[in-house]
Design a protein around this nucleic acid. Structure first.
Lengths: 195, 195
DNA sequence: CATTTTCTTTTCCGAAATGACAATCAACTA
DNA sequence: TAGTTGATTGTCATTTCGGAAAAGAAAATG
Protein backbone atom coordinates (compact mmCIF):
# COMPACT_ATOMS: atom_id res chain seq x y z
CA UNK A 1 0.00 0.00 0.00
CA UNK A 2 1.12 3.56 -0.50
CA UNK A 3 3.41 5.06 -3.03
CA UNK A 4 6.17 2.72 -4.21
CA UNK A 5 9.48 3.26 -2.56
CA UNK A 6 12.40 4.56 -4.56
CA UNK A 7 14.73 4.04 -1.66
CA UNK A 8 16.83 1.36 -3.32
CA UNK A 9 17.52 3.27 -6.51
CA UNK A 10 17.98 6.58 -4.77
CA UNK A 11 20.34 5.12 -2.23
CA UNK A 12 22.46 3.60 -4.97
CA UNK A 13 22.49 6.97 -6.69
CA UNK A 14 23.59 8.67 -3.51
CA UNK A 15 26.27 6.10 -2.73
CA UNK A 16 27.86 6.54 -6.13
CA UNK A 17 27.73 10.28 -5.76
CA UNK A 18 29.35 9.95 -2.35
CA UNK A 19 32.20 7.95 -3.87
CA UNK A 20 32.80 10.57 -6.54
CA UNK A 21 32.57 13.28 -3.95
CA UNK A 22 35.09 11.62 -1.66
CA UNK A 23 37.61 11.30 -4.43
CA UNK A 24 37.09 14.82 -5.66
CA UNK A 25 36.73 16.70 -2.42
CA UNK A 26 38.09 14.45 0.29
CA UNK A 27 36.41 13.60 3.52
CA UNK A 28 36.28 17.20 4.57
CA UNK A 29 34.67 18.29 1.35
CA UNK A 30 32.12 15.52 1.33
CA UNK A 31 29.19 17.46 2.66
CA UNK A 32 25.54 16.66 2.32
CA UNK A 33 25.21 19.55 -0.06
CA UNK A 34 28.01 18.39 -2.33
CA UNK A 35 26.73 14.86 -2.37
CA UNK A 36 23.32 16.22 -3.18
CA UNK A 37 24.66 18.29 -6.04
CA UNK A 38 26.78 15.43 -7.30
CA UNK A 39 23.83 13.07 -7.28
CA UNK A 40 21.46 15.51 -8.88
CA UNK A 41 19.17 15.42 -5.87
CA UNK A 42 18.46 17.97 -3.21
CA UNK A 43 20.03 18.02 0.19
CA UNK A 44 16.66 17.21 1.67
CA UNK A 45 16.59 14.11 -0.48
CA UNK A 46 19.91 12.92 0.80
CA UNK A 47 18.85 13.52 4.32
CA UNK A 48 15.57 11.77 3.68
CA UNK A 49 17.15 8.62 2.30
CA UNK A 50 20.34 8.20 4.27
CA UNK A 51 19.97 10.40 7.33
CA UNK A 52 22.64 12.67 8.67
CA UNK A 53 26.23 12.93 7.61
CA UNK A 54 27.51 10.18 9.87
CA UNK A 55 24.82 7.86 8.59
CA UNK A 56 25.86 8.69 5.06
CA UNK A 57 29.45 7.71 5.64
CA UNK A 58 28.53 4.57 7.51
CA UNK A 59 26.18 3.47 4.79
CA UNK A 60 28.74 4.28 2.16
CA UNK A 61 31.33 2.12 3.87
CA UNK A 62 28.89 -0.75 4.00
CA UNK A 63 27.90 -0.24 0.41
CA UNK A 64 31.47 -0.06 -0.84
CA UNK A 65 32.71 -3.11 1.00
CA UNK A 66 29.83 -5.35 0.14
CA UNK A 67 29.67 -4.16 -3.44
CA UNK A 68 32.55 -3.17 -5.62
CA UNK A 69 35.27 -3.96 -3.17
CA UNK A 70 33.92 -7.41 -2.41
CA UNK A 71 34.58 -8.30 -6.05
CA UNK A 72 38.18 -8.95 -5.21
CA UNK A 73 37.39 -11.54 -2.60
CA UNK A 74 34.67 -13.09 -4.72
CA UNK A 75 36.78 -13.44 -7.81
CA UNK A 76 39.60 -15.12 -5.97
CA UNK A 77 37.25 -17.48 -4.24
CA UNK A 78 35.59 -18.37 -7.53
CA UNK A 79 38.77 -18.90 -9.52
CA UNK A 80 40.14 -22.42 -9.73
CA UNK A 81 43.33 -23.16 -7.79
CA UNK A 82 46.27 -21.90 -9.72
CA UNK A 83 44.39 -19.05 -11.32
CA UNK A 84 43.80 -17.37 -8.00
CA UNK A 85 47.22 -15.85 -7.54
CA UNK A 86 47.52 -14.12 -10.92
CA UNK A 87 44.13 -12.56 -10.33
CA UNK A 88 45.19 -11.32 -6.92
CA UNK A 89 48.48 -9.97 -8.22
CA UNK A 90 46.82 -8.12 -11.06
CA UNK A 91 44.30 -6.71 -8.71
CA UNK A 92 46.90 -5.52 -6.27
CA UNK A 93 49.57 -4.27 -8.61
CA UNK A 94 48.01 -3.34 -11.90
CA UNK A 95 45.87 -0.50 -12.99
CA UNK A 96 44.33 0.81 -9.96
CA UNK A 97 43.81 -1.57 -7.09
CA UNK A 98 40.32 -0.19 -6.74
CA UNK A 99 37.48 -1.02 -9.04
CA UNK A 100 35.19 1.85 -8.16
CA UNK A 101 37.34 4.03 -10.34
CA UNK A 102 41.04 4.43 -10.63
CA UNK A 103 41.20 5.91 -7.23
CA UNK A 104 42.50 4.87 -3.85
CA UNK A 105 41.69 8.22 -2.39
CA UNK A 106 38.30 7.01 -1.36
CA UNK A 107 39.81 4.24 0.72
CA UNK A 108 42.20 6.58 2.44
CA UNK A 109 39.44 8.99 3.24
CA UNK A 110 37.39 6.17 4.66
CA UNK A 111 40.26 5.11 6.85
CA UNK A 112 40.38 8.62 8.16
CA UNK A 113 36.68 8.48 8.81
CA UNK A 114 37.21 5.15 10.53
CA UNK A 115 39.46 6.72 13.11
CA UNK A 116 36.57 8.62 14.56
CA UNK A 117 33.74 6.23 13.76
CA UNK A 118 33.89 2.74 15.22
CA UNK A 119 31.19 1.43 12.92
CA UNK A 120 33.13 2.38 9.81
CA UNK A 121 36.30 1.00 11.30
CA UNK A 122 34.72 -2.35 12.00
CA UNK A 123 33.36 -2.58 8.51
CA UNK A 124 36.82 -2.02 7.13
CA UNK A 125 38.49 -4.36 9.56
CA UNK A 126 36.17 -7.15 8.51
CA UNK A 127 36.69 -6.52 4.85
CA UNK A 128 40.46 -6.30 5.00
CA UNK A 129 40.72 -9.36 7.15
CA UNK A 130 38.82 -11.27 4.51
CA UNK A 131 40.79 -9.75 1.66
CA UNK A 132 44.12 -10.68 3.18
CA UNK A 133 42.75 -14.13 3.83
CA UNK A 134 41.83 -14.34 0.16
CA UNK A 135 45.39 -13.50 -0.81
CA UNK A 136 46.58 -16.14 1.59
CA UNK A 137 44.27 -18.68 -0.03
CA UNK A 138 45.65 -17.77 -3.42
CA UNK A 139 49.15 -18.36 -2.11
CA UNK A 140 48.13 -21.68 -0.62
CA UNK A 141 46.87 -22.82 -4.01
CA UNK A 142 50.07 -21.82 -5.72
CA UNK A 143 52.57 -22.85 -3.09
CA UNK A 144 51.06 -25.79 -1.21
CA UNK A 145 54.46 -26.83 0.07
CA UNK A 146 55.27 -23.54 1.75
CA UNK A 147 54.78 -23.16 5.47
CA UNK A 148 51.57 -21.49 6.63
CA UNK A 149 53.52 -18.92 8.56
CA UNK A 150 55.52 -17.90 5.54
CA UNK A 151 52.39 -17.70 3.43
CA UNK A 152 50.66 -15.54 5.96
CA UNK A 153 53.58 -13.20 6.15
CA UNK A 154 53.82 -12.95 2.38
CA UNK A 155 50.09 -12.43 2.02
CA UNK A 156 50.13 -9.55 4.47
CA UNK A 157 53.29 -8.26 2.84
CA UNK A 158 51.69 -8.18 -0.58
CA UNK A 159 48.76 -6.32 0.83
CA UNK A 160 50.95 -3.75 2.54
CA UNK A 161 52.99 -3.30 -0.59
CA UNK A 162 49.88 -2.49 -2.56
CA UNK A 163 48.57 -0.08 0.07
CA UNK A 164 51.89 1.65 0.49
CA UNK A 165 52.42 1.99 -3.21
CA UNK A 166 49.01 3.51 -3.66
CA UNK A 167 49.91 6.14 -1.11
CA UNK A 168 53.11 6.97 -2.93
CA UNK A 169 51.28 7.05 -6.23
CA UNK A 170 48.92 9.57 -4.82
CA UNK A 171 51.84 11.84 -4.12
CA UNK A 172 52.83 11.39 -7.74
CA UNK A 173 56.16 10.05 -6.65
CA UNK A 174 58.17 9.03 -9.71
CA UNK A 175 59.16 5.66 -8.23
CA UNK A 176 55.53 4.73 -7.79
CA UNK A 177 54.75 4.71 -11.47
CA UNK A 178 57.33 2.18 -12.61
CA UNK A 179 57.15 -1.51 -12.00
CA UNK A 180 59.15 -1.33 -8.81
CA UNK A 181 56.43 -2.55 -6.49
CA UNK A 182 55.53 -5.40 -8.72
CA UNK A 183 59.18 -6.42 -8.76
CA UNK A 184 59.29 -6.29 -4.99
CA UNK A 185 56.08 -8.27 -4.79
CA UNK A 186 57.45 -10.97 -7.02
CA UNK A 187 60.53 -10.99 -4.87
CA UNK A 188 58.32 -11.88 -1.95
CA UNK A 189 56.74 -14.68 -3.92
CA UNK A 190 60.07 -16.18 -4.88
CA UNK A 191 60.73 -16.75 -1.26
CA UNK A 192 57.83 -19.16 -1.10
CA UNK A 193 58.87 -21.15 -4.13
CA UNK A 194 62.43 -21.58 -2.93
CA UNK A 195 61.45 -23.29 0.27
CA UNK B 1 64.67 47.96 17.95
CA UNK B 2 61.08 47.50 18.93
CA UNK B 3 59.51 44.84 21.03
CA UNK B 4 61.35 41.52 20.88
CA UNK B 5 59.80 39.01 18.54
CA UNK B 6 58.28 35.85 19.86
CA UNK B 7 57.74 34.52 16.37
CA UNK B 8 60.15 31.62 16.65
CA UNK B 9 58.79 30.23 19.89
CA UNK B 10 55.18 30.87 18.98
CA UNK B 11 55.59 29.23 15.60
CA UNK B 12 57.10 26.15 17.20
CA UNK B 13 54.20 26.08 19.62
CA UNK B 14 51.71 26.32 16.80
CA UNK B 15 53.42 23.66 14.70
CA UNK B 16 53.30 21.17 17.54
CA UNK B 17 49.69 22.01 18.18
CA UNK B 18 48.98 21.49 14.48
CA UNK B 19 50.52 18.04 14.63
CA UNK B 20 48.39 17.06 17.59
CA UNK B 21 45.36 18.52 15.95
CA UNK B 22 45.94 16.60 12.72
CA UNK B 23 46.22 13.33 14.56
CA UNK B 24 43.19 14.00 16.71
CA UNK B 25 40.85 15.64 14.26
CA UNK B 26 42.17 14.85 10.83
CA UNK B 27 42.77 17.30 8.05
CA UNK B 28 39.14 18.29 7.96
CA UNK B 29 39.06 18.96 11.65
CA UNK B 30 42.27 20.92 11.69
CA UNK B 31 40.82 24.38 11.72
CA UNK B 32 42.48 27.56 12.80
CA UNK B 33 40.26 27.59 15.84
CA UNK B 34 41.16 24.08 16.90
CA UNK B 35 44.85 24.71 16.42
CA UNK B 36 44.47 27.87 18.43
CA UNK B 37 42.74 26.05 21.25
CA UNK B 38 45.26 23.23 21.15
CA UNK B 39 48.16 25.64 21.33
CA UNK B 40 46.63 27.75 24.05
CA UNK B 41 46.63 30.81 21.86
CA UNK B 42 43.85 32.70 20.15
CA UNK B 43 42.82 32.30 16.55
CA UNK B 44 44.10 35.77 15.88
CA UNK B 45 47.47 34.69 17.20
CA UNK B 46 47.65 31.78 14.82
CA UNK B 47 46.68 34.00 11.95
CA UNK B 48 49.19 36.56 13.04
CA UNK B 49 52.11 34.17 13.16
CA UNK B 50 51.45 31.73 10.35
CA UNK B 51 48.89 33.38 8.11
CA UNK B 52 45.85 31.68 6.70
CA UNK B 53 44.98 28.02 6.79
CA UNK B 54 46.88 27.09 3.64
CA UNK B 55 49.94 28.82 4.99
CA UNK B 56 49.57 26.89 8.21
CA UNK B 57 49.55 23.53 6.47
CA UNK B 58 52.40 24.46 4.18
CA UNK B 59 54.52 25.64 7.04
CA UNK B 60 53.67 22.57 9.01
CA UNK B 61 54.78 20.30 6.17
CA UNK B 62 58.04 22.17 5.93
CA UNK B 63 58.51 22.07 9.67
CA UNK B 64 57.79 18.36 9.92
CA UNK B 65 60.01 17.30 7.07
CA UNK B 66 63.00 19.38 8.01
CA UNK B 67 62.68 18.59 11.69
CA UNK B 68 61.56 15.33 13.19
CA UNK B 69 61.16 13.44 9.97
CA UNK B 70 64.57 14.40 8.65
CA UNK B 71 66.10 12.50 11.55
CA UNK B 72 65.68 9.27 9.65
CA UNK B 73 67.70 10.40 6.69
CA UNK B 74 70.30 12.03 8.87
CA UNK B 75 70.85 9.05 11.09
CA UNK B 76 71.32 6.69 8.18
CA UNK B 77 73.72 9.04 6.47
CA UNK B 78 75.73 9.43 9.66
CA UNK B 79 75.92 5.75 10.52
CA UNK B 80 78.94 3.82 9.32
CA UNK B 81 78.40 1.29 6.53
CA UNK B 82 76.94 -1.86 7.98
CA UNK B 83 75.11 -0.11 10.75
CA UNK B 84 72.89 1.75 8.32
CA UNK B 85 70.51 -1.07 7.50
CA UNK B 86 69.62 -2.07 11.06
CA UNK B 87 68.84 1.54 11.81
CA UNK B 88 66.63 1.80 8.78
CA UNK B 89 64.84 -1.45 9.55
CA UNK B 90 64.19 -0.45 13.12
CA UNK B 91 62.92 2.87 12.03
CA UNK B 92 60.58 1.39 9.47
CA UNK B 93 59.30 -1.61 11.33
CA UNK B 94 59.59 -0.99 15.01
CA UNK B 95 57.72 1.15 17.41
CA UNK B 96 56.13 3.71 15.39
CA UNK B 97 57.79 4.67 12.14
CA UNK B 98 57.19 8.26 13.07
CA UNK B 99 59.11 10.08 15.71
CA UNK B 100 56.72 12.95 16.20
CA UNK B 101 54.63 10.64 18.32
CA UNK B 102 53.41 7.15 17.80
CA UNK B 103 51.25 8.28 14.98
CA UNK B 104 51.22 7.97 11.24
CA UNK B 105 47.93 9.69 10.98
CA UNK B 106 49.63 13.00 10.52
CA UNK B 107 51.45 11.75 7.47
CA UNK B 108 48.31 10.40 5.91
CA UNK B 109 46.51 13.61 6.47
CA UNK B 110 49.34 15.53 4.92
CA UNK B 111 49.20 13.32 1.88
CA UNK B 112 45.57 14.19 1.58
CA UNK B 113 46.47 17.84 1.87
CA UNK B 114 49.15 17.31 -0.75
CA UNK B 115 46.58 16.24 -3.31
CA UNK B 116 45.15 19.70 -3.41
CA UNK B 117 48.24 21.74 -2.58
CA UNK B 118 51.22 21.50 -4.90
CA UNK B 119 53.57 23.10 -2.42
CA UNK B 120 52.88 20.49 0.22
CA UNK B 121 53.09 17.75 -2.36
CA UNK B 122 56.50 18.86 -3.52
CA UNK B 123 57.77 19.04 0.01
CA UNK B 124 56.69 15.47 0.59
CA UNK B 125 57.97 14.25 -2.75
CA UNK B 126 61.37 15.63 -1.98
CA UNK B 127 61.47 14.14 1.46
CA UNK B 128 60.30 10.69 0.42
CA UNK B 129 62.63 10.58 -2.52
CA UNK B 130 65.49 11.24 -0.14
CA UNK B 131 64.22 8.78 2.41
CA UNK B 132 63.93 5.97 -0.10
CA UNK B 133 67.36 6.87 -1.37
CA UNK B 134 68.64 6.57 2.18
CA UNK B 135 67.20 3.08 2.44
CA UNK B 136 68.84 2.25 -0.85
CA UNK B 137 72.15 3.48 0.48
CA UNK B 138 71.75 1.31 3.53
CA UNK B 139 71.13 -1.67 1.27
CA UNK B 140 74.16 -0.83 -0.82
CA UNK B 141 76.34 -0.86 2.27
CA UNK B 142 75.01 -4.22 3.36
CA UNK B 143 74.74 -5.93 -0.02
CA UNK B 144 77.42 -4.44 -2.23
CA UNK B 145 77.27 -7.41 -4.58
CA UNK B 146 73.58 -7.11 -5.35
CA UNK B 147 72.47 -5.44 -8.55
CA UNK B 148 71.42 -1.80 -8.33
CA UNK B 149 68.05 -2.62 -9.84
CA UNK B 150 67.32 -5.23 -7.23
CA UNK B 151 68.42 -2.91 -4.45
CA UNK B 152 66.22 -0.16 -5.73
CA UNK B 153 63.24 -2.43 -5.93
CA UNK B 154 63.82 -3.77 -2.43
CA UNK B 155 64.33 -0.28 -1.04
CA UNK B 156 61.06 0.91 -2.45
CA UNK B 157 59.43 -2.32 -1.35
CA UNK B 158 60.56 -1.83 2.23
CA UNK B 159 59.21 1.66 2.18
CA UNK B 160 55.84 0.57 0.84
CA UNK B 161 55.65 -2.21 3.38
CA UNK B 162 56.13 0.27 6.18
CA UNK B 163 53.58 2.69 4.78
CA UNK B 164 51.00 0.01 4.11
CA UNK B 165 51.44 -1.51 7.51
CA UNK B 166 50.97 1.81 9.16
CA UNK B 167 47.66 2.18 7.40
CA UNK B 168 46.52 -1.20 8.59
CA UNK B 169 47.70 -0.42 12.09
CA UNK B 170 45.58 2.65 12.06
CA UNK B 171 42.55 0.52 11.43
CA UNK B 172 43.63 -1.51 14.43
CA UNK B 173 43.78 -4.58 12.27
CA UNK B 174 45.02 -7.54 14.31
CA UNK B 175 47.55 -8.63 11.70
CA UNK B 176 49.21 -5.26 11.83
CA UNK B 177 50.33 -5.61 15.40
CA UNK B 178 52.34 -8.84 15.10
CA UNK B 179 55.68 -9.18 13.46
CA UNK B 180 54.23 -10.05 10.09
CA UNK B 181 55.51 -7.04 8.23
CA UNK B 182 58.92 -7.37 9.65
CA UNK B 183 58.99 -10.98 8.51
CA UNK B 184 57.93 -9.93 5.04
CA UNK B 185 60.55 -7.20 5.02
CA UNK B 186 63.27 -9.62 5.97
CA UNK B 187 62.03 -11.88 3.23
CA UNK B 188 62.70 -9.08 0.79
CA UNK B 189 66.20 -8.68 2.15
CA UNK B 190 67.00 -12.36 1.77
CA UNK B 191 66.52 -11.98 -1.89
CA UNK B 192 69.47 -9.61 -2.04
CA UNK B 193 71.78 -11.85 -0.12
CA UNK B 194 71.04 -14.90 -2.24
CA UNK B 195 72.14 -13.29 -5.47
C1' DC C 1 60.33 60.72 26.82
C1' DA C 2 59.24 59.80 22.05
C1' DT C 3 59.39 56.42 18.57
C1' DT C 4 59.30 52.17 16.61
C1' DT C 5 58.24 47.56 16.41
C1' DT C 6 55.79 43.76 17.71
C1' DC C 7 52.39 41.57 20.53
C1' DT C 8 47.63 41.12 21.92
C1' DT C 9 42.74 41.69 21.92
C1' DT C 10 38.46 42.61 19.89
C1' DT C 11 35.05 43.21 16.48
C1' DC C 12 32.71 42.61 12.17
C1' DC C 13 31.31 40.27 8.02
C1' DG C 14 30.27 36.56 4.74
C1' DA C 15 30.08 31.86 3.39
C1' DA C 16 28.99 27.16 4.09
C1' DA C 17 27.03 23.45 6.40
C1' DT C 18 23.88 21.09 9.49
C1' DG C 19 19.55 19.76 11.69
C1' DA C 20 14.83 20.04 12.05
C1' DC C 21 10.42 20.86 10.59
C1' DA C 22 6.40 21.77 7.76
C1' DA C 23 3.71 21.61 3.67
C1' DT C 24 2.52 19.90 -0.57
C1' DC C 25 2.39 16.40 -4.24
C1' DA C 26 2.08 11.61 -6.28
C1' DA C 27 0.96 6.85 -6.43
C1' DC C 28 -1.07 2.90 -4.82
C1' DT C 29 -4.92 0.18 -2.54
C1' DA C 30 -9.15 -1.04 -0.27
C1' DT D 1 -13.08 7.79 -4.08
C1' DA D 2 -10.88 8.12 0.40
C1' DG D 3 -6.96 7.01 2.90
C1' DT D 4 -2.26 5.90 3.41
C1' DT D 5 2.35 5.90 2.43
C1' DG D 6 6.19 7.96 0.84
C1' DA D 7 8.30 11.47 -2.43
C1' DT D 8 9.41 16.20 -3.00
C1' DT D 9 10.21 20.83 -1.94
C1' DG D 10 11.08 24.72 0.86
C1' DT D 11 12.27 27.35 4.90
C1' DC D 12 14.38 28.64 9.33
C1' DA D 13 17.68 28.89 13.06
C1' DT D 14 22.11 27.73 14.58
C1' DT D 15 26.88 26.74 14.34
C1' DT D 16 31.41 26.90 12.59
C1' DC D 17 34.88 28.68 10.00
C1' DG D 18 37.66 31.89 7.46
C1' DG D 19 39.34 36.53 6.22
C1' DA D 20 40.19 41.19 7.37
C1' DA D 21 40.89 45.15 9.97
C1' DA D 22 41.16 48.23 13.83
C1' DA D 23 42.76 49.60 18.19
C1' DG D 24 45.27 49.22 22.34
C1' DA D 25 49.25 47.41 25.21
C1' DA D 26 54.10 46.23 25.87
C1' DA D 27 58.96 46.39 25.29
C1' DA D 28 62.95 47.85 23.25
C1' DT D 29 66.01 51.92 21.43
C1' DG D 30 67.72 56.52 20.77
Amino acid sequence: MGRPSMAAARTEQIMQATGRCLQKNGLAGTTLERVAEESGLSRSHVRHYVGNRDDLLRKFAGWLYTGYEAEFIGKIAAAPGREKLPIAMDYLFSSGFLPISDDDTVIRELITAGIADASIRETMQGHYTQAIQAVENALAAEYPAASPGARRSVAYGLWCLAMGNSMMAELQLPVASGGLVRAAAEGLLERLSHD
